[in-house]
């Protein structure tokens, strides 16, 4: 997988980091005013998938592990949150915590088994285990099989703020998204993140320096699964729905596509990729063009022409000019 994953890993000039910071601020300001111009549910869908893609990117972009089973954490958390809010009557923030904890637990099991193998074998084990989880979701009574969990109440945040108000829901999702992205940014730029990068760069060398690389990989895997779960649980609250779509292998493929399109190993790439894919899906479904064909075509063009993804190519161009 090394060839796929270390595309955008160059060290960047400091001026570019400052530019990235200002662009993030501008993007945040836009997100604050956006719901007054654009349909909030559409924006929330983008934010949920963007957080999902960022969580996935934590693993593929900064540890070099290509998981093909992240739908299990995303969709699994959606079920856990939906069930605890609807059936147990818990408040949304507790429901989200349960979703995150469940996804982290699943991540611990899947990661523990998968990190023992490298490259494509790692990906195949994650795929196989997530398919097993899909089957559990199909059969278990609490998921209601093909129907899914419908009519999930959004409830009152901390028992006070009613999330049935679209703007309250939107700003809750925005805060969750920002918190999730900041958490990822912190992990990547921490002493732990530094070791993750070293492992991605040269695993045998990291071992020879005394690092138990399996533990670092597992730690990153669980963190990525938990954050994917945060995205999935949030989506269940937004759409008041948890279904099999979110645990299916196509969802694992979709998040890979989003991350690849936007730029693996960049902070903004997965957000851009998710926004692009979700927007295309929304508009194309109205026009009647088969979505998957077009997205497939875009994917091929992306892989052939700009392998670093949209943000990855931009960063590459800017950092070359800065030198």
């Amino acid at each position: 997988m090394a060839g796929v994953t270390d595309t955008a890993a160059e060290s960047r000039p400091p001026g570019l980091a400052r530019l990235g910071f200002w662009m993030a601020l501008v993007a945040l300001a836009l997100l604050v005013v956006a719901p007054f111009a654009i349909y909030p549910v559409f924006l929330m869908k983008i934010l949920c998938f963007a957080l999902f893609a960022c969580a996935f990117n934590l693993l593929v972009g900064y540890v070099g592990l290509l998981s093909f089973g992240h739908a299990a954490f995303f969709g699994g958390a959606a079920y856990f949150t939906a069930h605890s809010v609807k059936v147990w009557g818990l408040t949304p923030e507790i429901g989200l915590l349960i979703g995150v904890a469940g996804a982290a637990g699943l991540g611990l099991v899947v990661g523990f088994l998968a990190i023992r193998r490298q490259g494509i074998y790692f990906s195949m084990i994650t795929l196989a285990l997530s398919q097993m989880f899909f089957f559990v979701c199909l059969q278990a009574p609490f998921t209601h099989g093909e129907d899914g969990i419908q009519g999930v109440p959004r409830g009152r945040l901390f028992g006070i703020v009613s999330l049935d108000d679209p703007l309250a829901m939107y700003f809750t999702v925005l805060v969750i998204f920002v918190a999730g992205v900041l958490a990822i940014w912190r992990i990547v730029n921490s002493p732990f993140g530094n070791i993750l990068k070293a492992i991605r760069e040269n695993e045998p060398r990291a071992i020879s320096l005394g690092y138990r690389v399996d533990r670092y990989k597992l730690g990153a895997f669980v963190m990525s699964a938990a954050l994917a779960g945060l995205a999935g649980g949030t989506k269940a609250l937004v759409f008041q729905l948890a279904t099999l779509t979110d645990v299916q292998w196509q969802m694992s493929g979709e998040v890979i596509l989003m991350t690849l399109l936007g730029g693996i190993g960049t902070m903004a790439g997965p957000v851009v990729g998710a926004a692009l894919v979700v927007t295309l899906q929304n508009y194309l479904s109205a026009v009647g063009i088969p979505v998957n064909v077009l997205i497939g075509a875009i994917f091929i063009v992306c892989v052939l022409l700009f392998r670093r993804g949209i943000v990855g190519e931009a960063v590459h161009l800017l950092s070359r000019r800065a030198r």
């Binding site: 912190r186 921490s190 002493p191």
Partner: peptide, 9 residues
């Protein structure tokens, strides 16, 4: 200083 994921690099 290897496992701290919550502190700044």
């Amino acid at each position: 200083l290897a496992t701290q994921f919550w502190r700044s690099a």
